[in-house]
Write a protein that binds this DNA or RNA. Structure first.
Length: 279
DNA sequence: CCCCAGTCCTGCGGGC
DNA sequence: TGCCCGCAGGACTGGG
């Protein structure tokens, strides 16, 4: 479930390819149905071969490799996608291999067990249309308190659901939304339009703290083991989870409340009814 | 504007 | 011990 911290870890992990030239672009044969490529892989290959990597960025939960042609390779991990550097293809589920001249790093691999991930090559106009400000809000680590409040302040949606809306702000997913609201001591069902300035300050501060710490620890590796850094080492933030998948267990904050799981917008939310008020 | 159900896909864990 | 079912949820679509 790569969210901002996991995707940022991937981005940093492949940043060493900047300035390097693409030697090959391949889709290893596999038993699984192929993931989605847009346009088809042969077209992507033709357009990236021999191109120099100008920058490696991140757009919300997507990794963006920008070439000197101004085309951008957008890698969208969705549920179980992840990037690896100089790891063996026999790990299985390798959906794409990008090889660089010189090195190391020699090659970037996209591994995706469930295969819901998407790889796209977009020119600047397409990038603007698909991932511009109309489709993707400000990055969760960069948005200001005022912008957060003004973008959500009139919404009647529950705060937990609103934080997941990538058009509002980019990067927060299901896991970190629960952790952020627990740190903010705010009930996940609290209605945005009823929140006061102090709530927005708390949500904003908690969001920055949780996400920055998770980036520092290279993200969360869950029991399914589908995420780790580009060297295939697990992240460390899972040991800092306060509520996520801890339903029925005592709250680590107050020690007295019991973590509850509820479903909002068809997704699990975890919170402490004793610590988190406002609904 | 917002909500919901369905879609993609595989691995895993609960229940029997 | 083995099998089946449902769940995990990111992004998107279609209908209300």
């Amino acid at each position: 479930m790569p969210e901002l911290p996991e995707v940022e870890t991937m981005r940093r992990g492949i940043a060493g390819i900047v300035g390097r030239t693409v030697a090959s672009f391949d889709r290893p044969r596999s038993k699984q149905a192929p993931i989605r490529f847009e346009p088809e892989p042969a077209v992507i290959r033709r357009k990236v071969l021999g191109r120099r990597v100008a920058a490696v960025g991140r757009a919300g939960k997507r990794v963006v490799i920008e070439f000197d042609s101004a085309d951008r390779l957008v890698i969208e991990p969705r549920m179980t996608g992840r990037l690896l550097v100089d790891q063996p293809v026999d790990l299985g589920y390798i959906r794409m291999v990008l090889e660089l001249d010189g090195g190391p790093p020699h090659r970037v691999l996209f591994r995706d067990v469930r295969g819901l991930g998407v790889v796209r090559l977009l020119n600047p106009a397409e990038f603007e249309r698909e991932l511009g400000p109309d489709r993707l809000g400000p990055d969760a680590l960069e948005i200001s308190i005022d912008e957060l409040a003004s973008r959500l302040g009139r919404s009647r949606r529950p705060i937990k659901v609103a934080l997941l809306d990538q058009r509002v702000l980019a990067g927060v997913g299901n896991l970190y939304a629960s952790e952020i609201l627990h740190r903010a001591k705010l009930h996940p069902a609290a209605v945005c339009s009823e929140l006061k300035p102090r709530h927005w300050r708390l949500v904003h501060a908690s969001m920055i703290e949780v996400l920055a710490e998770a980036v520092r620890l290279q993200g969360s590796t869950l029991s399914d083991g589908t995420y780790g850094n580009v060297s295939n080492q697990p992240g460390g933030y899972q040991d800092s989870h306060r509520v996520y998948q801890r339903d029925g267990q005592p709250c680590l904050q107050c020690g007295r409340g019991q973590i509850v799981r509820l479903v909002q917008a068809q997704r699990s939310t975890f919170f402490c009814p004793r610590c988190q008020k406002g609904a």
